[in-house]
């Protein structure tokens, strides 16, 4: 298909002989948002890291449009310019002001002119409500602000696809929504994304498609309506139940929805 952005074809990855990804396939079309969920240690981060070449894969193929990512690609950094990634830990560069964090990729990797990108960066910061923070050091920002800057930094590269790995997992609860709202805004704007998250309500709101990963295989794949309200596998049901609490007053109140952890 011509509008397929990313194609992951039956990939395998093991660490020290333990299979972490065991035949994962995945296709993401332009403008599509795929959310990947699954229990801790099931290989979600590893999958995203393989996609942008931070880990090598043992078998299978990964294609970004018509470029192959897997195998011995010399020009990995060129492909990474087209794949944005934001991690769980705050990884702004602490020795640079916010603006310099934002400009590093576009000016050094893409060779664009500073003035031109700076204007664009200011507009984007304004969209995420951080225009007044453009010229401060990251250490003066809250966790939620840092992650919004990290999102802007990735977006300024105009990537074909954005990979988000639990970008709110290290945040205080009250800062989670300010970051996730930015992601939903990007999704509305047509950004292609693969998102790993433990925020189930957010997952349901943002996903076009949900992938349930367990022990390195895709156990279930479908629309958010179907996955969250009528999961097909017993494993997925149990996983979703782990996000709910039985009420103190009502013994039978365990439904597969409710407060995310």
């Amino acid at each position: 298909m011509s509008d397929t952005i990313l194609r992951v074809n039956d990939i395998y990855k093991s660490f020290d002989g333990t299979g972490v990804l065991r035949g994962v396939s995945l296709e993401i079309r332009e403008g599509e948002v795929v959310v990947i969920v699954g229990p801790s240690g099931c290989g979600k981060s590893t999958l995203l890291r393989c996609i942008n070449g931070l880990e090598t894969i043992d078998r299978g193929e990964i294609w970004l449009q018509d470029e192959k990512i897997s195998g011995q690609v010399k020009e990995l950094h060129v492909i990474r310019q087209k794949i944005g990634m934001v991690f769980q830990s705050y990884d702004l560069f602490p020795h640079m002001k916010v603006m310099d964090n934002l400009l590093l990729g576009p000016t050094k990797a893409l060779g664009r002119h500073r003035q031109e990108v700076e204007q664009e960066a200011l507009q984007m910061l304004e969209r995420v409500g951080l225009k007044e923070k453009a010229y401060v050091y990251p250490r003066t920002l809250s966790g939620g602000q840092k992650q919004r800057v990290a999102l802007v930094r990735a977006m300024l590269m105009h990537p074909e696809i954005l990979l988000l790995d639990e970008i709110t997992a290290a945040l205080d609860p009250e800062m989670v929504s300010e970051v996730l709202n930015v992601v939903i805004d990007l999704a509305r704007g047509g950004m292609t994304m693969a998102i790993v998250t433990h925020e189930m309500r957010f997952a349901e709101a943002v996903a076009d498609r949900v992938l349930f990963l367990e022990e390195g295989v895709v156990l279930e794949e479908g629309t958010p309506e179907k996955f969250f309200h009528a999961p097909a596998t017993e494993r997925a049901q149990r996983f979703l139940q782990s996000f709910t609490y039985a009420s103190k007053r009502d013994q039978a109140a365990a439904k597969p929805q409710g407060e995310p952890l």
Binding site: L54, H77, R80, Q81, F87, L104, K108, A109
Partner: peptide, 11 residues
């Protein structure tokens, strides 16, 4: 992760 996030923006 400093190295990784720098690599991730295509440097």
């Amino acid at each position: 992760h400093q190295t990784e996030s720098a690599a991730a923006i295509g440097l």
